Computed example of a mutant assay.
Amino acid sequence: MLPINHFKDYEEFMITTRRDIHMNPEPGFQEFRTSKLIKDYLIKWGYDVIDGIGTTGMVASIHGKKPGKTIGLRADIDALKMQEENDVPYKSLNDGLMHSCGHDTHTSMLLGAAKYFSDHNEDFNGTIKLIFQSAEEGPMPGGGIYVVEGGHIDDCDGVFGLHITTRDKRGDIIIKKGEAMAAPDEFQITVKGTGTHASAPHTGKDPIIAATAIIQAIQTILSRQISPLESAVISVCTIHGGSAFNIIPDDVTFTGTIRTLNNDVRMDIFQKLEATATSIASSYGCRADVKIIEAYPPLINDPKMSDFVMNIAKEVVGEDHALWASEPSMGGEDFSYYLQKKPGSYFWLGGRDPKQETIYYNHNPKFDVDESSFVIGMAMHVNIAFEFLK
């Protein structure tokens, strides 16, 4: 097992590369500069590259000294549509875009591992596939589905990935067996009524009253129609309607998210949401148009592969810092597509400076990471690959 210090010579490269990518963030399916940067390095290091996967994604392969198994390691490359609020030398130069989820670090750590594999391709047998994936944050259905449906992991015997997070301190690695992350589906409901003057509500059909009744009622789907042993969330996050204080509008639209860890529960909630909205709207003399935008399926880690990663983590960061998660995250991640196809595991890498008191969690405009965590992530990538291919 190769210790963290073994990779120190690659640390400056990863930090410099991360800062370059961080300063030039690009949204899903538009990561053209980022994609070119990655491809240029991989070609220089002797990789076989297939690009244009999900527009800007790519898969790069390198072969060891003898034939053997094939492993897939994945990083996502897209940024979020968010204004950065950090005052740092590498602050985003692209207005309204920011790497506030850490994909710049994922890309840099996997590039560090890519350089190492190129420098040491006599040290392993088999094939290593590096997947640099577009649009993990969407637009839906995200970039992962193009990798999987394109057959690019069909020959992989296992697939692995990591996600940096400021929820956890630098030096910690966290894994959840089985159900690890939720399906992050979206819904949009438009309630259509008949607008009228606010002084005479009886002459119209008020979509605002109908919409508020629906919003209240859909919470009972979870509390009264789904088993309390199942984990699920329904949250309404936007509501739009009306144009003046004295006019009842023709329609109201509200949107939100459904988070589930079980596909059967997921489909059941879809049906119940539509039935609840349409029936309540009808009772108010209105009509509800329900649109459900399916996102990624739940992320289910293979138990044996998770044990494999945990054993490596214990060697890399020590038993006190290699931790089992007691509960899943209700966040979503399209690495779930990979795990539907192949056995593997997805884990969290702590990225917060232990001395930092305030936690700016992923997707916060002040999100930033302790860059000394990169060498830990690289050590995990390399050791997972080398141990898996033995």
Rank of each mutant, 00 (worst) to 15 (best):
Y41H: 15
I384G: 10
G150A: 03
I226K: 09
D87S: 14
G331H: 13
N94M: 09
H381N: 12
Y296K: 03
S100I: 06
D9W: 00
Y296T: 06
L73K: 04
N311R: 11
V317K: 13
E149I: 01
C237W: 00
E84T: 07
I153F: 08
G332F: 10
L261W: 01
G138F: 12
A322M: 12
F308V: 11
Y90E: 01
T260P: 02
H6V: 05
P3D: 14
G242S: 07
C237Q: 05
N86L: 06
D9P: 00
I234C: 03
G151Q: 08
D9V: 03
D370G: 10
A210F: 10
F117T: 05
G171C: 11
P328C: 06
H106G: 02
V252F: 04
I312K: 13
E357M: 09
I164H: 06
I128H: 08
L2T: 00
E26G: 03
V147S: 04
D51R: 03
E179T: 14
T107H: 05
T190C: 09
A295E: 11
I128V: 15
A113I: 07
L111D: 02
L37K: 15
N125H: 06
V159A: 03
T212G: 12
D251Y: 03
V147P: 07
H103Y: 09
G344E: 11
M1Y: 08
D155M: 04
M330T: 01
I215C: 05
P89L: 05
L130R: 11
D320Y: 02
E315V: 10
N362K: 11
M378F: 00
V369C: 07
I21W: 00
S243W: 02
G377T: 05
E11K: 15
S243N: 11
V290F: 04
K65A: 14
I226P: 08
P249R: 11
I247T: 13
K44Y: 04
R167D: 12
I258N: 06
D172F: 05
D76P: 03
H363T: 11
K69G: 10
D368A: 01
T238P: 01
K44V: 01
D9L: 02
V316T: 09
I208S: 08
A183E: 06
I384A: 07
A288T: 08
I189R: 07
M380Y: 12
F187W: 07
L2Q: 15
T17K: 10
T165K: 02
K341L: 04
T165R: 05
R18P: 04
D307L: 07
Q340F: 01
L80M: 14
Y296Q: 03
N5H: 12
S283E: 03
P3H: 13
K355I: 00
